[in-house]
Nucleic acid binder design. Structure first.
Lengths: 239, 239
DNA sequence: CAACAACTGACATGAAACTGTCAGGTGTCA
DNA sequence: TGACACCTGACAGTTTCATGTCAGTTGTTG
């Protein structure tokens, strides 16, 4: 059967794809729509309209149908498929983790929901997701535990407040100097008052953290620039 | 023509959808692959392989083909289409704005790039995007300006540090009490020492902000609970 | 400049998808 | 409890899509 030229689509019944997009546009008004009315509007059977709704739902469009009532869209915003570098994924994850800790209730819940859904959308085994469009990558996992303290630590660095922290040993008092980020792991560089030496602590290993009211000032041999010098010395020796 | 039962797919040539997913899996190694080799591997013609690449690219998969060389994937991570509530979009945007301000250089750049691309992916006019899967909604706009001070203000609230701020009048010293979030606008509820009264300031209106070392304690009539009582009183009178 | 490999349109064929019809089941609401 | 409207499987007929073939174009690299 010879294919109709594209311009005849204006008078031909619309393709299924076109109809699906049009259904989305209509539903975006947030109102309830009955399948029979939509079917009539697109001049298809109600069975076809039910098939359409099934396909849209399977494609990830947030549609909900209720017996005795009709269809409505539950999330009117849709991001298209996004290709991310690893850095962008980390930024996305970190940003949602920060909002998940620091935002007000509604914002925190929204951030947590979104992070969970992004996590679910990126399964670890690379398996094919149920619906079309998805791709498999790696999960967010427990990285939120590592970001839990970022906000507090960063603020303490800025306001030069000492920290009392526990990792696996006894609690220690430290002067937080700088944060580093190594792909999913945050490292705190600090002067440890308890041990009298510089230390590097992974934030995800901190089990208890208290921001102390005590402030600190730079002292010779214990500042960020001293840390940098000791690193340069160590790097020089190492080769 | 009777439809083959699903289980016979295991011995039948794979469906196009399966092949497309398999192509993505292969390309994810980051290496260059020639179309002829992929075609041989999937036992299809090279023309079909070229059609597949066109469909994958149109679906948002980050593939690039170079004449004389082959195909490779340029962004190995892909988020599928995500349906977002307005709150989730705000959380996403806020999270990226925070990382864009607070992250280290690589993280900040990644956050800014991603926010820009999300912004671009949600055009204002609600038009149908070029490829399948995407939907149009509203742009991010300039909300980052309003989030610039969130981190500092929140930390000041927690550590009970006074703030010196300028909006459109002269600089004022305030005691930050609580932050509220009203869909893209952050409001700071505070006791204004300069004016001797409670005040509500929009964070995006703050042009200069300094976190003072001075701390404050609750005083009768000037605390968060006093603010709540004054709000209840006003609400009671109003209706 | 030649080799390499991406890239594209047109056509015919067979397979797959879409559609309407039919019959029947199910949850919500007043 | 009845009205309402969602929901689903099976079947047959129609339409669309995927594919291979063919011929030709184009950009990159050494």
């Amino acid at each position: 059967m010879p294919r109709r030229p594209a311009e005849s689509r204006r008078t031909a019944p619309p393709s299924r794809t076109t109809r699906l997009y049009d259904i989305i546009r209509i539903l975006r008004d947030g109102r309830v729509h009955r399948a029979e009315a939509l079917a009539r509007r697109f001049r298809v059977s109600v069975r076809t309209l039910y098939r359409d709704m099934e396909v849209l739902a399977a494609s990830g469009v947030a549609i909900e149908g209720t017996r005795g009532r009709g269809y409505r869209m539950t999330a009117p915003l849709t991001l298209p498929p996004l290709n991310l570098s690893f850095e962008e994924l980390e930024a996305l994850h970190l940003g949602l983790a920060v909002v998940g800790e620091a935002g007000d209730d509604a914002m925190r819940q929204a951030a947590e929901r979104l992070a969970a859904r992004i996590d679910a959308a990126l399964p670890e085994d690379g398996g094919q997701p149920d619906g079309p469009g998805g791709l498999a990558l790696r999960p967010f996992g427990d990285a939120a535990a590592g970001t839990r303290h970022v906000t507090a630590v960063r603020a303490a660095i800025r306001s030069r407040q000492k920290l009392r922290m526990t990792t696996e040993g006894p609690a220690r008092t430290v002067r937080p100097l700088k944060l580093e980020y190594w792909g999913r792991i945050w490292l705190l560089n600090c002067w440890c008052e308890t041990r009298g030496d510089f230390a590097r602590e992974r934030l995800d290993a901190i089990t208890a953290l208290t921001v102390l009211p005590a402030l600190f000032v730079d002292e010779p041999g214990k500042s960020l620039s001293d840390l940098a010098r000791s690193e340069i010395g160590a790097a020089g020796e190492g080769g």
